[in-house]
Design a protein around this nucleic acid. Structure first.
Length: 590
RNA sequence: GCCCCUGUAGCUCAACGGACAGAGCACCUGCCUUCUAAGCAGUAGGUUGUGGGUUCGAAUCCCGCCAGGGGCGCCA
């Protein structure tokens, strides 16, 4: 926001250093740690260290301070800056408070829901995420990938990318065969209940349990697989019908979560071309067909690459009985995506960390085979959601917290809380607040965490609406709205404010967080890291809470009131924008 | 045996190689005739697992070690 001033200053500093033989290379600017007012700062440690390396006998810290002091005199009188100071080797340039505040607030109010967005990059990126398995339950473990993927898409779009949201349900595999067997044997003819996914999941869990109790039943399951492999019409029809049940359940779930997809791929549809790729790999000597010796079709990647140390290990790309497995289908899908979208700059897969090796193998095999698309493909991994005691959620073992249950619990809880806190809410308002707050409370903990860190799910934390959580941020947004409503003025009719009252520290800190939002969006996009947004959203809300407490708005004197109203409107907008990037609704009341 | 991730306050987690390592929860003390207390202010809590190295400067980068988790030819 002070690019022009920054350039002026850089030019002056560089000129000074050149004239005085100081070997300055690059200047890096960073925000000054908050100290009641703010600005940007740079340091001279690197220059001083460079001098020391040239043979001068100097104390680096001392010399840095010396340079900072000399440079300080060069930067006075730049419009927009109030003063400069040299301290501990840093040169701190303080912005003219009024001017800076005005620029930040007016920028936000001018750009509205685009504040923080980046210019169009012209690049198209595909993110594949969620990939639920049909015929299975959808539990909290799946929620992280879904929520994370959705947020990453929102962030990338906002940052200027053209995003393709892809889903890849696992609609065929051993789990489906097992389900079909269980259905035919124990539930034949039954129709799904209202909670489709839950009902499907129960049948799957039952089938797993029966198989465990009586392993002899495996032969029956295998025969179902054989019937599928022969495409026996009866089995295919049953599969199609039950698969559709699951997909309908998923559609309902995604609607409830406010997550959407642009394109669906299904592993059942990649089977054929996957097998063709494998055949080609065998023909070209990349894959080894060990089926004649009772083995599978494999790619000894390390050997093919001539690596002495094992790194990529060996990948199985086709079962010994010739049926496809996920690796077979993933080889095909990776290419399929590029034939659908030839201009993809990147094709990313958001899949949990246990699949890391799998994806490095897939991409490496395609690369060996000469498919350049592989270089544009990548895996974004994230850690699992576990239950207390490090218990991994498993549909098979029934150690799951179902999404349906969690959603219901969270909204019920949020509704009760909202009614208690604000009895004046109408039924319709209660309904939407419950949805916004309940859903936000679920999403935020999944996003406010490093992707590589495990999330331990427990009900107490999940339903705790206080502190660093989504409701706190939503509440800040509501309070902004409340002030604007109470003031009874249309903010768009207020002229830009001069902000020439002496700003309170709380106001300065608040403005500071607003100004950082655009760069955090870029960082979050570059690192696929919604955490950056979750953090700044919280920090902005926290700064606002401090402001709310320290700075009256509605009852302030006319000039201050007008200025603060615009500030509050800017905060409200920024909070709404950041929550939107997390896929969380910003309510007007709660 | 090979590879990946994690280790920061009692607990859960933050911290683009920079200034004094910060929040929340829990605990304790205050604050609702004032814009919604889902809030605010304050107290307390640290050898950033450990030993080296690089650097003017390391929680952050490199190497070793310890601890926990995960992945390594026909599950997805």
């Amino acid at each position: 926001m002070f690019q022009t001033e920054q350039q002026t200053i850089e030019a002056r500093i560089k000129a000074f250093c050149t004239a005085n033989g100081i070997p300055l290379s690059v200047l890096e600017w960073k925000p000054i740690p908050f100290s009641g007012e703010w600005g940007m700062s740079t340091s001279f440690f690197a220059v001083a260290a460079a001098e020391a390396r040239l043979g001068k006998k100097i104390d680096v810290a001392q010399r840095a301070q010396e340079i900072a002091e000399q440079v300080q005199s060069q930067v006075s009188g730049v419009p927009g800056l109030s003063h400069a100071e040299a301290v501990k080797g840093y040169l701190n340039l303080f912005f003219d408070t009024q001017e800076y505040t005005r620029r930040v607030v007016e920028t936000v109010l001018d750009q509205k829901d685009r504040f923080g967005s980046g210019p169009a990059t012209g690049q198209r990126v595909m993110i594949e995420f969620s990939h639920p398995n049909t015929h299975k339950a959808f539990h909290v473990g799946h929620l992280r990938g879904t929520i994370l993927g959705d947020a990453i898409c929102r962030i990338l779009e906002f940052a200027g990318y053209d995003v393709v949201r892809a889903n890849y349900p696992g609609d065929m595999g051993l789990h489906v065969i097992k389900w079909l067997w269980g259905y035919l044997k124990f539930h034949n003819g039954e129709e799904p209940s209202a909670d489709i996914t839950k009902w499907m999941g129960e049948i799957y869990a039952e089938a797993s349990k029966r198989l465990e109790e009586d392993p002899d039943l495996e032969t029956e399951v295998r025969s179902v697989y054989a019937r599928w492999d022969k495409r026996e019409p009866q089995i295919v029809a049953l599969w199609e019908r039950t698969r559709e049940w699951s997909l309908e359940g998923f559609r309902q779930m995604y609607a409830a979560l406010d997550v959407r997809f642009d394109v669906y791929y299904f592993n059942s549809q990649e089977e054929k071309s996957g097998k063709e790729i494998v055949e080609e790999l065998v023909r070209r000597g990349i894959a080894t067909d060990e089926r004649s010796q009772g083995g599978a079709v494999i790619v000894k990647i390390d050997e093919v690459l001539g690596l002495a140390k094992e790194q990529f290990h060996t990948a199985v790309v086709l079962r010994s009985d010739g049926t496809a497995l996920y690796a077979t289908e993933d080889l095909a899908l990776a290419l399929h995506k590029f034939s659908d979208y030839p201009d993809l700059a990147k094709s990313l897969y958001l899949v949990d960390v246990r699949q890391s090796l799998h994806f490095t193998q897939i991409f490496k095999i395609l690369e060996i085979a000469g498919h350049e698309q592989a270089r544009k493909s990548g895996h974004i991994s994230y850690e699992l959601v576990t239950l207390p005691g490090n218990v991994v959620m498993s549909s098979r073992e029934g150690t799951v917290v179902l999404l349906e249950d969690l959603l219901r619990e969270a909204t019920t809880r949020a509704r009760a809380e909202a009614h208690k806190k604000n009895p004046s809410l109408t039924e319709a308002q209660l309904e939407s607040v419950a949805k916004a707050v309940g859903l936000g409370a679920l999403k935020y903990p999944m996003l406010a965490r490093e992707n590589t860190k495990m999330v331990t799910f427990d009900w107490k934390t999940a339903l705790d609406f206080n502190g660093q959580a989504s409701p706190y941020i939503q509440y800040a947004h509501v309070r902004c709205n409340s002030i604007l409503r109470k003031a009874g003025v249309d903010i768009t009719n207020l002229p830009p404010s001069a902000f020439d009252h002496s700003l309170e520290p709380a106001e300065v800190e608040l403005i500071d967080w607003l100004s950082r939002f655009p760069s955090e969006v870029q960082r979050a996009a570059a690192e696929y890291k919604p955490l950056a947004i979750a953090n700044i959203a919280y920090n902005t809300a926290k700064a606002f809470a401090g402001f709310y407490d320290a700075c009256p708005v509605v009852q302030a004197s006319p000039e201050i009131r007008a200025a603060r109203l615009r500030m509050v409107a800017a905060v409200k907008q920024t909070l709404a924008n950041s929550l939107a990037l997390l896929g969380i609704t910003a309510p007007e009341v709660m």
